[in-house]
């Protein structure tokens, strides 16, 4: 059994109104140092098998096919 963690975030060029709203809320709480906020998703996957590169390529395919919309999102994979 292996575990992978996928981070899905909006591409830098894509506006993130949710991140902006979070930043405004943080500033409202007095965290004036919060200058910019961008938010995204974390997806944890448990996978059968023990071959690192096979898991890497399988999770990459999952990201391309479903987990990220590559028109607007980037993804990053960590094998845990």
């Amino acid at each position: 059994m292996m575990k992978a963690r996928v981070f899905v975030t909006l591409k830098p060029a894509v506006l993130d109104p949710q991140g902006k709203a979070i930043q405004n809320a943080l500033n409202g709480l007095g965290f004036d140092e919060a200058q910019s906020v961008r938010q995204g998703k974390v997806i944890d996957i448990e996978l059968s098998g023990d071959d690192n590169s096979a898991v890497q390529s399988s999770v990459t395919e999952m990201c391309e096919k479903l987990l990220a919309n590559t028109v607007i999102e980037d993804y990053r994979i960590e094998i845990l």
């Binding site: 894509v14 506006l15 109104p17 949710q18 709203a21 919309n69 028109v71 607007i72």
Partner: peptide, 17 residues
């Protein structure tokens, strides 16, 4: 239709949230 690739682009959260 955008998600399955029949149309280009994407639909995102409304700017007003």
């Amino acid at each position: 239709l955008t998600e399955c690739g029949l149309l280009p682009g994407a639909l995102m959260r409304n700017a007003s949230l």
